[in-house]
Design a protein around this nucleic acid. Structure first.
Lengths: 132, 132
DNA sequence: GTAATAATGATTCTTATTTTCATTATATCC
DNA sequence: GGATATAATGAAAATAAGAATCATTATTAC
């Protein structure tokens, strides 16, 4: 696979991700795009999501260790997951320098990046569910 | 399962995790314990790891979204994964207050915890592999 | 337009984890 | 200390997300 060619499917996938702020799973991408591309295949979705993530055009991460989630926005930011409803949202803060510097003092490795995942109750679940 | 009973297997699993600093997977736990408990079953290992994690007696997390890893040390700390050899080590720093406070300003949810995963090259791979 | 080859859709295969269920171990009660 | 209740086990089958395969189609270069 020396030189890659464009594909309608790949372009639809990245365009779709850039319209969504909710970090959809591969299956959600598939289901959504299927409405306009009825013979899109799930394998193609997985293939392209992996490829795009390798190229750094999208982010791939997991909150629960089970399902991968994808993010069309690659600027540095952290994530927040509601432990009640499962919604994953962005936390627009970037403490890269601070965290990297602090971590460097606690390891002899070379730190090239990090991810942060906050957990808790989103505004909606916090209200509904007064136990939180 | 109103009241739980003790079991040799469960106690062996937690004891084993408390001797290891390398965040073993379920399979590693299984393989290791099998040497002294030859008829231990993998299902029992999974069952107990999940149970112990729910009880907060061990930590369950994932670095790659594929395999779960387990940690017998539950005090607050972060993790570092070498992208070359895959080794996962502890970073003994705790910025809970700072991060929680900063994040609270960027969300209307209630933040109850967070995880941080650093990535990079461990000391050994950094030396071997001068490309890093 | 033709040739070369990357990408697709459909399907099968992997692999980590979960579930099921008959049997065994643990705790309780007398 | 034995009988009883039930949680936990071992072995095996079931799930489910993701990766791999392969014949066919689409894209790019000439």
């Amino acid at each position: 696979m020396a030189k890659l060619k464009r594909s309608r499917q790949r372009e639809a996938i990245i365009a779709f991700l850039q319209t969504r702020k909710d970090h959809p799973t591969a299956d959600t991408v598939y289901m959504s795009l299927r409405e306009t591309m009825p013979n899109l295949s799930l394998g193609t979705v997985y293939r392209n999501l992996s490829l795009l993530a390798e190229q750094g055009k999208i982010l791939k991460f997991s909150c629960d260790g089970k399902v991968d989630r994808f993010d069309g926005f690659v600027h540095p930011h952290y994530h927040f997951m509601c432990v009640d409803c499962g919604e994953v949202s962005d936390v627009e803060m970037d403490m890269t320098e601070l965290l990297t510097k602090a971590a460097a003092e606690h390891t002899d490795g070379l730190i090239t990046g990090h991810t942060v995942l906050f957990k808790g109750y989103c505004a909606r679940c916090r209200e509904n569910n007064q136990t939180a």
